[in-house]
Every structure is written in C-alpha cells, then in structure tokens.
Amino acid sequence: MRILKHSDHKRMPWKNGQGVTEEVASFPPGSDISNFGWRLSIAHVGADGPFSVFAGIDRTIALLDGDGLCLDLPDSTKELDPKGEPFAFSGDLDISSRNKGGPTIDLNIMTRRGQFRHVMRRFCGEPIVSDDEDAVRLFVFNATTSMVIDGQAIVFDRFDALLLGEANSNIALTGHAVTDVLAITIYRVD
C-alpha cells in the first residue's frame, strides 16, 4: 500500500505538447509514455484541441473539475460531467476536445492492450468497496476525504491517491458518505 500525495505527482507536457499532465503512477517503475504497461495521470485542459494518439492503448477518462468536456470522436460526441461516469475509448482514435465554460481537469488511465486491462468507477456518496483480488487498485480522491484503512484513519487531500498492489487483496476501505473517489482496477492479461 502506498499513499501518493498530489504534491509529489510528476508534472510533464502532454505527448502532443499542447497541455500539462501530472503522472500519478505508472508501471513498470521508471517507464515513460513510450513503454508503460499502465499509466494514471491528471490532465489540465486549458484550451480546445486534439488528444494525443496512443496506438495500442485503451483509455478511460473522468472529469474532475470544470463545467464539462466535450469529446469529438470520429462518429459521435461524448460530453463528460464533473460528477459523471468515466468514459472508455481506444487510444488509437483521433479525438479532439472542447471545454464548456473554461479550463477542465480530468483523470486518465491508460493500459497497454494485450498486457493489461482496466476498469474505472466513480464513487459518490456510497461506501467504497475494494474486493478484487489479483489486481492493482488505485483510488484518486476528488475531495478531501477521511478513510479508514484496516482500522487506521487517514486523511487524503484532493488529487491524492492510494495505490494497493496485488498483495493487498484483504485491505478493508470504509469511507465518508460525501466522498468523490475514482477507483481504478488494473488486471494483467494472461
């Protein structure tokens, strides 16, 4: 189990150079955007424009802050809301985005197809359940949250994260009813 503080997230330019991202965690350790197996990041979207293309990568994003983000896909448009469900898509697609009412911030999980797969869920106002064995689990807190982890109270600030490895399958998480938490589960593909 590791607590990943927002102040420690690694900041870097987007692959296409048109924005800034904060890397929350990646695997394997020391990997970069060309050779990760999985990568979790927070993107700051200040202007409308194209998404970076990541061939062979599956992605899911959820809006953390802002009035809304419209994704222009090859055959449709998807609008993300600040409390809405995460949206999964292929990193192979040419996508552009438009902010509604100003800059936005989103959470982005990417997994390399054929090596890993992922699921992202948003928990708002219900207990957080973490019972997937043989998986890596990450929790990103979109509000200051107090959680009890195996009987110990821990306070997480906004954009802090909790990383549970495959060996942490029996950790019990209980949370506050007003939390906004994004839970990401990453499975190895055999």
Rank of each mutant, 00 (worst) to 15 (best):
M1R: 11
D8G: 10
M12Q: 12
K15C: 00
K15I: 00
G19R: 07
V20E: 15
T21A: 08
E22C: 04
V24N: 03
A25C: 08
A25Q: 01
S26K: 14
P28Y: 09
S31P: 08
D32M: 00
I33G: 00
N35I: 08
R39P: 10
L40Q: 05
G46V: 07
S52N: 12
V53E: 12
V53W: 14
F54D: 07
A55V: 10
A55C: 07
D58W: 09
D58F: 08
R59Q: 09
A62F: 10
L64V: 10
L64Q: 12
G66H: 12
D67A: 14
D72A: 11
P74T: 08
K78T: 13
K83E: 12
G84Q: 06
F87P: 05
F89R: 01
F89L: 02
G91A: 07
G91T: 09
D92P: 07
D92H: 10
L93S: 09
I95C: 03
S96P: 03
N99R: 13
I105Y: 02
L107G: 11
L107Y: 12
N108R: 05
I109C: 06
I109L: 15
T111E: 07
T111N: 05
G114V: 04
G114Q: 04
F116A: 00
R117S: 15
R121D: 15
C124M: 06
D131G: 15
E133Y: 02
A135I: 02
V136I: 08
R137E: 14
L138D: 02
L138G: 03
N142G: 15
A143R: 15
T145N: 06
M147W: 14
V148K: 14
F159Q: 12
D160Q: 07
D160A: 07
A161L: 06
A161M: 05
E166Y: 02
A167L: 10
A167T: 14
A167N: 13
N168K: 01
S169E: 14
L173N: 01
G175S: 14
V178C: 04
V178K: 12
T179N: 14
T179K: 01
V181C: 14
L182C: 11
A183T: 01
I186C: 09
V189Q: 14
D190F: 02
